[in-house]
Design a protein around this nucleic acid. Structure first.
Lengths: 337, 337
DNA sequence: CTGTTAGCGCGTTCAA
DNA sequence: TTGAACGCGCTAACAG
């Protein structure tokens, strides 16, 4: 790695390093001829500033951290990828941090972030945080944005999980179902996510507003995985009075439920209707009815909110994006197969 | 962001900054008592070294770049995630670079990487690179590792794509199929990936070794997407003499094919058998027969190869990992539905 | 074993 | 408009 430094450029251009620095960053007070000379030389020498050195001396950082609970899941991958696009376009570096269980969460919020150097913003995706922690971090000058679940005191980008679950359940009710199972619950190792609860409340409210009694037996925990969805669906379908429809609060779990139905020889939607949540890229191919949430838009909005905050704009209300019920084959009444 | 520097620690501990640096990094020549004192003070002050400053002065970097053609795809997300785990454990920072089309690829290889500062290794995932470019980069001191497709002169981690495709096709032949369509081709905007060709060759060889003539009409380009798989499957099934089985060289395309079959009212595997490639997380739930390739292992092996290279070990042969045919419902002869 | 002296490569004062 | 000097926070070389 031969390295061409700002000094080499200065020498070759016959000016001082300060002038090179100014010229290359487009600062005003540089004679046009000088600037052009410097730019030419820099290009010839293939000079690129060392970001470490430059950040070190300028005390700016232009780096943000995105914290997610899990890696490898479609939803988080999409989200991160959309944040990254906006961040890169704005000249920011993005770093990823995974904080799944409560220990990791605490470590992130109380060790990594408070001590983080060269970081000016954090996007917390489905990461619970209490007011004391919020205070500690904002006082340190960190800008915070939450995605997914609401956090008091900081900008939150999310959808209406309650309303979306209400619509999904009502869709099943409208098809005539009265025994509707809910595959909900927390991902493994988590206990304090609010999103599953919000969706469960939407489910319950929809049943109540349709005059259908809520049966606790029909509410199970599928831990947000395909395998979990499969297991819990099997369990629900083994009940004395099994459900005729299932609402899974993630498409992974819905896919698992479809697998369980197939293994049990049940026709979907003939014997069992299924609705998922997210509109995973595979949902269309599987014919899975689901609630679409705008994943990339949430990532973009979150990064934009961070940029606004860094720009000195005060935080406003939660930014609530639109969801949409997408009815496909797994709830198609004309399709009995 | 109040910042506590090494000087604060030195002052509080009553020693010099050099001693603090040595003590905290576990270097040998430090008195046990001094070390303990320094460590205590550092902990109380919540001191963490600034990585930028430390890299700047040590001229080490401990950063690698992973280059992938696309973002958001399951295969690449898994791979990156597994590289990241090994990199983090080894104390390396990982940066991600997306180089999809040929312009981006050229920009990466001829601008970003040659000029990259503070980077000591690159993992190229399905990124073609010619010998001149390899030379230019290795001469600059960069360690290179390829994943997916073979590259002359550098360590490559991959599977036997030819053999895997041969097995998948033979599986269909063994089930009695003689008209077998291939959904292959390049992802949108790419022209020089070798993997699709290798799999296509495996397909052709399997047919020939079974004495089945190769029909060019049955070989189509699904550009590695769900939508592409759906479109091309529709196209194949509309032929005068349509195939009774399809081999798609990615699970996404296979899923698209399943969707097309359903829309056309064809039973799978009764009317149409389907085999995919990758063993995507959704393949099990869909009952899709496929070729499993060890995704995470490839990422781990690649990062390990990079560490070995940084350690001065010479590159050896290609590291070829095992694949495995996973027969599920879409090729189950007992299942006519 | 420890402290002092030099930088790493850059941005940012000040004078000039 | 330009340049010299200083400092960012840390590690490396040398003394002692």
């Amino acid at each position: 790695m031969t390295k061409v430094t700002i000094r080499d450029v200065a020498a070759a251009a016959g000016v001082s390093v300060a002038t090179v620095s100014r010229a290359l960053r487009g600062l005003p007070s540089v004679a046009p001829a000088t600037r052009e000379k410097v730019e030419t030389v820099a290009r010839e020498l293939r000079y690129v500033p060392d970001p470490y050195a430059s950040n070190l001396s300028s005390a700016t950082n232009d780096t943000i951290i995105v914290a997610i609970p899990f890696t490898g899941q479609w939803y988080y991958a999409q989200l991160v990828s959309s944040v990254e696009a906006v961040a890169t376009a704005a000249g920011y570096d993005m770093r990823l941090h995974v904080a799944g269980d409560d220990d990791q969460r605490r470590h992130l919020l109380e060790v990594v972030l408070p001590q983080a150097r060269r970081v000016d913003g954090v996007i917390l995706v489905d990461i619970p945080i209490d007011q004391g922690e919020v205070h500690q971090l904002t006082e340190r000058g960190l800008h915070l944005v939450a995605v997914g679940q609401h956090v008091d005191g900081i900008v939150t980008v999310r959808i209406d999980n309650y309303g979306a679950a209400f619509e999904a359940t009502t869709h099943l009710v409208d098809l005539g179902h009265r025994r509707i199972g809910l595959i909900g619950g927390m991902p493994d190792g988590r206990t304090e996510l609010s999103i599953p609860g919000e969706r469960e409340n939407g489910y319950i409210a929809a049943l109540e507003s349709a005059g259908i009694p809520v049966d606790e037996e029909l509410i199970v925990n599928g831990n947000f995985s395909i395998a979990g969805g499969c297991d819990t669906a099997r369990q629900l379908l083994a009940l004395d009075e099994p459900p005729t429809a299932l609402f899974a609060i993630s498409d992974e779990m819905a896919a698992g439920a479809m697998q369980a139905a197939r293994e049990l020889g049940l026709a979907v939607p003939g014997d069992l209707a299924i609705v998922g949540f997210d509109d995973h890229e595979f949902a269309g191919a599987m014919g899975l009815s689901t609630v679409r949430q705008p994943v990339a838009e949430q990532g973009e909005a979150a990064m934009q909110a961070l940029l606004d905050a860094a720009d000195g704009q005060p935080w406003g209300e939660d930014r609530i994006l639109e969801h949409e019920l997408v009815a496909r084959i797994t709830t198609d009444e004309r399709n009995g197969s």
